[in-house]
Design a protein around this nucleic acid. Sequence first.
DNA 1: CTGTTAGCGCCTTCAG
DNA 2: CTGAAGGCGCTAACAG
Lengths: 333, 333
Amino acid sequence: MARKRVTLEDVAREAGVSPMTVSRVINNTGRISQATRDRVREIIIELDYRPSRAARTLVTRKTYMIGLVLPDITNPYFAEIVQGVENVAWQRDYSVLLVNTDENTAREQAALSQIEETTVDGIVVCASRLPDDVLLPLIERHQHVVAVNRQVPHHLASVVRSRYAQGHRALRAAELLIEMGRQRIGYIRLARSAIAVEADEFVRAIEARGVPSSPEWCVTCAPNWRAGYEAGRALLSNHPELDALIGGNDLVALGAMRAAIELGRRIPDDLAVVGGDDILMASQVTPALTTFRSPKVEIGTTAAQLLFKRIDGDPNYYEHLYDETLVRRASTG
Amino acid sequence: MARKRVTLEDVAREAGVSPMTVSRVINNTGRISQATRDRVREIIIELDYRPSRAARTLVTRKTYMIGLVLPDITNPYFAEIVQGVENVAWQRDYSVLLVNTDENTAREQAALSQIEETTVDGIVVCASRLPDDVLLPLIERHQHVVAVNRQVPHHLASVVRSRYAQGHRALRAAELLIEMGRQRIGYIRLARSAIAVEADEFVRAIEARGVPSSPEWCVTCAPNWRAGYEAGRALLSNHPELDALIGGNDLVALGAMRAAIELGRRIPDDLAVVGGDDILMASQVTPALTTFRSPKVEIGTTAAQLLFKRIDGDPNYYEHLYDETLVRRASTG
DNA sequence: CTGTTAGCGCCTTCAG
DNA sequence: CTGAAGGCGCTAACAG
């Protein structure tokens, strides 16, 4: 059944040249006469020869693959980043090894330590949930890495992240809500997120503006719709006094908004809601969600480009900052 | 800088054993005394030895990677399939090579012909847009392939697909709409989709029920929200008489529904809308979208399982049929 | 239980 | 412009 694999040597024999010549034709390297080049090409097609990646990798040490580690592919935010990375990789004839860690840090850790240089020429790590003391040693072993939405020492990786400080979104959202007269702002922050602000910091920032706040109005949940729904339901049941809600990302905010509606809150009259990354759904629900637009595909393409810069030999690490712009919609009135 | 790679031999030398022994320890194969096993393990850690995948692949002919080819990762439908595939691969210590073809058939073709057996141990192909005469030769070259939502000869690949015939969803939706009294049903079908029904077939099926229809009420568009929006806008502008709309999938139906709302149609009073796969957004918009629920994650896990069956040596190809169940929501009244 | 031998398929290096 | 030799790092198949 499995007829023997066609190798370089087979092609060489058939073409009456040395394996080396065939190799040169394939890689377009060295000087080869047009005649033999054509002849070899013919034989390659005739024999349906396909080079062995493994053999090539063994000697060149290049895999022509990049790794992409992310927490949840079903979050449209990450799906768009994947699209960006994929596009750039495609143009460079690279493949993308996807590792979806399903918000599981153990899995992420395993992935990062197993995806060696022998598997992949470089790595893009998205919004890692791992603490610094676990993540940094892990990326230290890789020659080329780009971190997305995560601060990492400049000598370890390139970085693509928001121009603003961590927690910026939540604080900026709070500011907006206060300006609009909201006085009791709930906050559903994301568990283990590098960009979340701590509850007490959030409380202090709000109180600094002369508005009451409380750590009781802050809850933490996983970054998906279901978790947001449940967190919102719990928070609003326990604290009916809230007149505004900030979600760590759109999915969470949308889940919470659904819970609010089910609990009879009218939005934005009784309750204003703000999200975080502007996924499609945010603009399509009723009322539409006020959120921050982030350039998702661009994040992916830039991350891939910075990675290829390194792969191409540039010894520097870079930092790319992107802007998040507030998009005001009906959920805040 | 790049300190020399640590190899099996280094470990062997340091441990005072033969490379073969080290290999056996790593692969947990053969009988090794506990003493030497421990000793070797120690040295491996001490030297921070990592096996070379390429070298191993070269001799074993196994890459421990599977390929996943799909048209659009930003469609939540496919994102969930990815999640399913990823989970199974993860359990088996396999990696997933993702190829997002961006609805570009040339790219899909390239991917399928380049992702060789030397790169990947098997392939899952989702909803290929390629015509049979292009797709079949392509998958013929691969030892192990699973096709999702696509009919393929039983001797070429395993298949995961809906229990119902092609076009079932659209026809079933039409039936429902007719039952509910709709008389002028528009259809936005997906371009190059294996599950779409042809316009004239659709028209005939409806007329067979004594309801008027017309090919003019059928348009074709790309399977994304934007395209659905534009198709819906055009269709409703040209044919204000329509009182119902069927979309090829949820994204398209949701886009069309948005267009309808912007054109002043009240849903479901003036216009009923039906979608296709039940993504999260379908249940969250207002009015919520009537659609068909498909077991997306299950599709992914099943596809991966069927693939591993083959990889594990089962010579058979299988066919897994899943059910799509109608979910009636407000968009149809 | 452990070692030896012989490649896997390709590319680097050095000769012509 | 082309070829010969050697080795990348690992494991299969046999010996012991």
